[in-house]
Write a protein that binds this DNA or RNA. Structure first.
Lengths: 208, 208
DNA sequence: ACCTGAACACCGTTCAAGT
DNA sequence: ACCTGAACACCGTTCAAGT
């Protein structure tokens, strides 16, 4: 039970309030559960218990379970957007920057498969009705669009509709990510890593 | 309620057995529910009731809910494999055959989004432990590998590792399918259809 | 073999009530 | 405002019992 720190049963004396940012704590705990045991293992009761809070306290901050999951997904897109942007910058933009973004993307997906799945799998049916989630997702996508526009300007990418081009690149990387976290690739060097390299190479050819 | 035929409450006189192929009926009913209302709406009790059968009758044919879902997923891959093979053949193989396979793929995904999601989204955690499901999935994938090998032989595709090449193409189409059924593309002609055409065109360039 | 009904241990969510 | 405890209407699954 060396990993019991993950549970964080944070028992506080009964009768006290959860002074502090309960909303934040709920999202963090939900994310921890999802990352560790998958979204199927997420129960509101479990989250509340881990925080030492009543089962219904959550409804002060989220209208229902889907809202909580949507918040977790939104958080994911935010992290995602920042990781992509950082990779692009640190690699010095240009084609190496594009490669670095691809790597960062796949690193996030394979490092947090359950979280990634929550972001892209329709666990949030209300996606259409959660404008903030949609906006955050578009923000992450926009990083790629901007990069491609810049590459087009420098003659590193063909001057197709940048939105369409970005959707294609996104599709490839998303597809690779899904195959990877679904365990549909051979383990080890021949699997995800090899496909990642090949995909990077062929994407360059496809947009050149 | 003109669509009540979908429910098929098939009430039979109490005390009778469900003479016939209950296993088949369970899979069909589960698929119907998933296609109509999504996998989240699938309950064993609902399936049993729709079939006019006891809640526990199901356990004669499936060890648990996941097994039933796995059977539905397996069925999906079978349909998928046949659709891909048929498209390839009917288009006269070659590059038009590859395009036709892509179209057939996207048609299945957008026509049966919930079913498609069950096939690819880890609802079946036991995927690794269900050899039949894995085998069926590989069968569908093999159709694409064979097509690419043939294209390579005819000089229509670069002679890269065919498995890697197939995984790349699969990634693109899967990615496009996911973006489509997730509603992350603009509606109408500018959305899924445009991306499908662009992806087809750019895949040709990537593997040429 | 195949099916049943009652029971068990879970869920998400509501609601009147407390501070 | 924020939290609580009891209650409700659901689940998947088990099990002894029926034919």
């Amino acid at each position: 039970m060396a990993r019991s720190v993950l549970k964080r049963p944070q028992k506080k004396r009964a009768g006290q309030y959860h002074h502090g940012d309960l909303r934040r704590a709920l999202i963090d705990q939900a994310l921890r559960t999802i990352d560790t045991n998958g979204v199927a293992a997420l129960t509101l009761r479990g989250v509340a218990e881990a925080l030492g809070v009543s089962r219904t306290a959550l409804y002060r901050h989220f209208s229902d379970k889907q809202s909580l999951v949507a918040a977790v997904a939104r958080e994911g897109f935010r992290t995602f957007r920042m990781a992509l942007g950082a990779a692009w910058q640190e690699a010095g933009r240009g084609l190496p920057g594009l490669d670095a973004m691809g790597e960062a993307y796949l690193r996030f997906a394979s490092g947090h498969p359950a979280h990634y799945r929550v972001m892209f799998g329709r666990f949030v049916e209300s996606q259409a009705r959660d404008p903030e989630l949609l906006q955050e997702a578009e923000g992450a996508f926009q990083v790629l669009v901007d990069a491609l526009l810049e590459l087009q300007g420098e003659g590193h990418a063909r001057r197709d509709d940048a939105l369409l081009q970005a959707r294609l690149v996104w599709s490839v990387v998303h597809g690779v990510a899904m195959l990877t976290i679904d365990g549909q690739l051979p383990p080890g060097e021949d699997g995800a890593a090899a496909l990642g390299r090949y995909a990077t190479d062929r994407i360059r050819a496809a947009i050149a």
